Simulated scan of single mutants.
Amino acid sequence: MPEGPEGPEGPEGPEGPERRGRGRTTLLIAGAVVLGLVAGTCTGYLIQADREPTKLPSLSQPTLPQAKGPAPEPLSAAQDRQVKTEGDLRKLLLTKPKGAKEADWLGDDGWMDLAAYADSYEKPEEVFGDLVGDEFRRAAVTGWSEGSTYTVELRLVQFRQEETLAAADYCDNNQYWAEDEDSTDSWPVPGTGTGMAYVHRKADTKPGYLPLYSAEAHAWRGDVSMEIWVYGSKSIPKKKIMDLAERQMERL
């Protein structure tokens, strides 16, 4: 006779009753556990009801003595760095020295927007995307030329810094590339923590052009990264780049 639904693999086969029996046993055990939990909980309530209420600690705190003397004066705008950097960044830039000529390559308003700042790098497309991700806010710029010997450019680049410390990161990046150049001397800028100044002793030479020497300085404070670039037809003295860097950082 052929095996049908009630055969070896059906509900009445060898495995069918065993599975059903195990299910009923599990259900009974589970019911006993629930009853046990309910009984235990009820017993706990009865025991707690017969006890005296536990006294809770006082919520009041001891009164702390107040410091004596007048309240401290608030910082002035000159002392509060945040007040400085939330204002017009252009006012924090160094002014051109007497006798120097204003740089006509920087525009008229003293601001450098995101596109213009990215364009100052060798790969502006990549830098543009990085600046957007790093929350570039604004950049103030100034510069001048001193006769036919030197040109100077200073930038204060500010970031929103809601996610990362971008000002420090960009300062570190600029320092990395400055140190990577051959024949470069470097010195810490006093009072800046990690600020550095660099003089590149090897001139950049191109056919049809005079040799071009350069120096630079990079430091940061808060959400502002400082960049200084000096170019000249002869080697830049250490004193020149250090003086610019120290005086500019004193204004931040």
Score class of each variant (00 low, 15 high):
P5V: 12
P5N: 05
P8N: 01
E9T: 09
P14T: 05
G16W: 12
R20Y: 01
R22I: 09
R24C: 00
T26G: 10
L28Y: 09
A30P: 08
A32M: 15
V33L: 15
V34Y: 03
A39L: 05
G40H: 11
T43F: 14
I47K: 04
E52C: 11
P53F: 10
L56V: 15
L56P: 04
S58V: 15
S60N: 04
Q61R: 00
L64K: 07
A67V: 15
P70L: 11
P72F: 11
P72G: 10
P74R: 13
S76L: 02
A77L: 09
A77N: 11
A78W: 07
D88F: 06
L92Y: 08
L94E: 03
K96W: 05
K96C: 05
P97I: 01
K98T: 12
L106H: 03
G110P: 09
W111A: 08
A115T: 03
A116P: 02
A118T: 12
A118Y: 06
K123F: 03
E126P: 03
G129Q: 13
V132F: 04
E135T: 01
R137E: 13
R138E: 14
A139F: 00
A139W: 00
A140R: 00
A140N: 03
G143E: 08
S145F: 08
E146K: 09
G147H: 02
S148K: 08
L154P: 07
R155C: 06
R160E: 13
E162C: 00
E163M: 08
A167W: 07
D169I: 06
Y170E: 01
C171F: 05
D172H: 07
N173R: 15
Q175M: 13
E179F: 06
D180G: 07
D182P: 06
S183N: 03
S183C: 01
P190F: 01
P190V: 03
T192E: 06
G195W: 09
M196E: 11
A197P: 00
A197C: 05
P207G: 10
G208E: 04
A217M: 12
M226N: 07
I228P: 13
Y231W: 11
K234N: 05
S235T: 02
S235I: 06
K238G: 09
L244P: 04
A245S: 03
E246L: 14
M249H: 15
E250R: 12
E250C: 00
